[in-house]
Computed example of a mutant assay.
Amino acid sequence: MGYSRLVFSVIGLVVHLWDFSAASRINLALSGTALQSSTAQGGEAERAIDGNSSPEYAHQSCTHTQEEKPWWRLQLPGVYRVSEIEVTNSIETRNRLNGVEILIGNSLVNNGNDNPRCAIIYDVPGSITQTVQCRGMEGRFINFYLSCATAEVISLCEVKVYGELLPPPPSITIQAEERNVTLVGKRLCWSDALFYCRAYYSDLLSIRGPEDQVMVDELVASAPFPLTSQLWVGLRRSITGTWFWMSRDPMDFTQWDTVSPHSSHCGGVSSLEPSKWRQSSCEEHLDFICVTGPTEGVNKVRFYSSTREKQTQCV
């Protein structure tokens, strides 16, 4: 059947309630890595997470990009719920933080600058250091981005991040010949499931033929954790009514349930009845199936959400 063995991960089955007072007061940025769009005047990206909060550039603790839509990115050692971020400005060039967006997420599309927004910051008169509340936004990447500037520079003298490490969701994986298929026990709307799979795997799953369907049925039957009645896969319907795979695999094989409604733009597989595909509201929160496979030559469908800058991303 083309698959070899199952890999289980049931970490995270316990319901976790976010408590802001319980967020770690350890500065997470110190254990991260920093990168920026460009470097000028010796202002390396790592200076913003060196533990030195001096706002004077001469103390060699502030970053400095070149112009042309600059960005600075912190990669945390895992995925965190971020409670707050503390930013120290440069005392000589305070205006450089005016209008800078702070973005948090797991995607590296557009260098991470398409992730949801926590805040837009500005120079605060009388205060070199300011704190923004991100209220548990989840992500591994924290970007500072000047999206509207055509000729500007970002300078940061220190960035401190506080939050709590997220346990991975429960999952089970079938290792196939050329790709791994992972059932993820994390209930998301269809668009968020797509973004999740593209951030951590390759894409939402496409079922290309009978052998893939048998593999999915066995994967679902082997799940060691409770599942939603339907599971998102990479099925999407165009405005003309044509169904397609987000991976651009051909739609040569289908298993639609004859009683499935024909009003939704999103589709998945049943976890209760083997080999049944059904349509559901794209905003319904379901578990989902991701795939990891070859990326060379892949031309998957690009998906844009007008609400990606918000915490609620469902469309």
Rank of each mutant, 00 (worst) to 15 (best):
C189M: 13
W190I: 04
V181H: 01
I174V: 14
Q130E: 10
I121V: 11
Y122K: 09
E177H: 12
C157K: 04
Q130D: 13
E164C: 09
P125G: 01
V184Q: 01
V159C: 00
V132I: 15
T182R: 03
F141G: 01
C148P: 02
S127M: 13
Q130Y: 08
F195P: 00
L146Q: 09
P169V: 10
Y122M: 08
V184R: 06
S127K: 15
G136F: 04
I154Y: 04
I121L: 00
R179M: 11
A176Q: 14
I128R: 11
R179W: 07
V181K: 02
E158T: 05
R187V: 14
I154N: 03
L183F: 07
G139M: 03
A193T: 06
G126P: 02
N143T: 15
L165K: 06
F141Q: 06
M137D: 13
G139A: 07
Y122L: 01
E178A: 01
T173I: 08
E138C: 07
V159I: 14
L188V: 07
R135H: 12
Y162C: 04
N180Y: 02
K160M: 10
L165M: 11
C148N: 07
C189E: 11
R140P: 01
R140N: 05
L188Y: 12
E164Q: 15
I174G: 02
P125R: 10
V153I: 15
C189W: 09
L188P: 02
G163R: 00
A176N: 06
S171D: 05
L146A: 10
G126K: 09
R179F: 10
E158C: 11
L146I: 05
S155A: 09
F144C: 04
L188N: 07
A193H: 10
I142F: 01
V153E: 14
F195Y: 13
G126Q: 03
S171F: 04
P169R: 04
Y145T: 13
L183Q: 05
L194Y: 05
R140M: 09
E164L: 14
R140Q: 15
S171L: 08
S171C: 05
T131Y: 01
A149Y: 02
N180E: 13
C189D: 10
P168V: 13
A176D: 06
G185S: 05
